[in-house]
Design a protein around this nucleic acid. Sequence first.
DNA 1: CCGCTTATCT
DNA 2: AAGATAAGCG
Length: 493
Amino acid sequence: MHGGYGYTLMAVNVRFVWSPIWHMCFAALQRIVKIGTPFARLTSRGGHGPSQSSIHHLATIWSSKKHASRPLLAWLKGVLKVERRNDALDVIEDRKYRLNLVVTDIPWFNTNGFDTLQYIGNEFKLAVISTSRNENAKLLPADFASRVILYFLKSMSVSSFETLWQHACVKEKGKATNAERASMLYENVIEASLGNTLAVCEDTPEQTEVTADDDSPQKNKKKNKKRVVWDEKMKRKFLEAIELLGSDHAFPKKIVEVMNVPGLTRESVASHLQKHRITMKRAHGALFPSSQFALNFNSSQGNPETNFYQLGSSSSISVPSSNFSPLFHTEASTSRSNLIHEPYGLGSAQVASGLVPGSRVNQTYGIETILPSIDIGGSSSNPNSTYVGFRLAVNGKVESGQTGVSSNDEKKAVVVNLSAEGAENESLVQYPSTSVDHVAQQPPSLPPMVPSILHDFESLGADVEIDALMNMVGSGGIFWEDDFDDTIFHNTD
DNA sequence: CCGCTTATCT
DNA sequence: AAGATAAGCG
């Protein structure tokens, strides 16, 4: 798995993903497909496909979680594998007006890869995000940095991944102000949702349609203005909408539209929003009474839906709890820790070099956001995950520090204990000897956040026959059906 | 009513 | 307490 892979190109559209990285694809798939994103995969890596162990690993997880075969099959069918870089470029070029974003994992030191970046940027006018498992970010040449809008250190996390499509949105709409971005996102989500119903999940047991009888205590609010019951599903949608729109753009009307619940009135949402804000403010002040840097946890045995925290007043990211994320939970059971990884926290070396992993390195596309990520922890493929910044551990503690960046330091982090409402403990555990010596002394400049998509892994379909999948993938792994574009670009132009 | 917010009511 | 309704306001 180390090094030596060829060229991989990945482009993300609102509706689909090209990706070389299987586990990320799967994880992203679960989320993206939920909002209706068909996907495709394109890889050019000298004839080498994803490893069987990787496939098996993921397939096992999916199987054990009773997860859908349909999206999985759809995804597999959407795979296009090409042998050479130029083939990959051809594929992209053919569709460059339909793609929004290209993600690569071309190592920066790879000359051809460098050319590839340049080519994509110049010829296709596509935004490029690069990932690399390797090396210290400060070693990256500025030239490289200037050709990508974002740079990820591996392990790039699924959470980061799922936010990529939003960058695609940015590209799609050209330059957009921050104010416009919210509605822009909304539009694409709605669009994607339509695509989902049509292309991916023909029938989702999501409907829960009401048989309008005399007194149906259903939570549905079809016609009569029954009192709205904000059950978990409703709350989830609500929070999704908030996240998507951004907390400072989340107004009742748009929330209603994003939630897309028939009969749900703006007034109801407004009322709920009011309560929600009160709840937020309470938790806000409780943890950090006099700080702009606020964390809000409603964790533990409560609703997973409300398990989020907020950075700053204007933006928030979600942190899926472990039991809310079956895939990760499975992995975490063997390898521990759901981590949230937020590159702004520290890493002064990287900042000084002007290249913060995961942060903006280029303003061409107006990307102002960093990509929060959740490191699924030492999976077999990523024994030593690299992270710089903050991370959320499963024990509810937020750590800031770094691992895997320098050589063989082990634990070095500032641990912020977020125990029960009130007193925040901040204890210096240990600091790395070299690069980072003043960390989190004061809150970093508030990282702008990309709202991430909450996910719902349920009701995606039936189980899949693993063996069949294995055979399918094992033999050639090239799936490029005649109607591929019709499927993938369904409803597009 | 145009929509968002805040206050009040049940 | 949760949600609806009223009222204030740009």
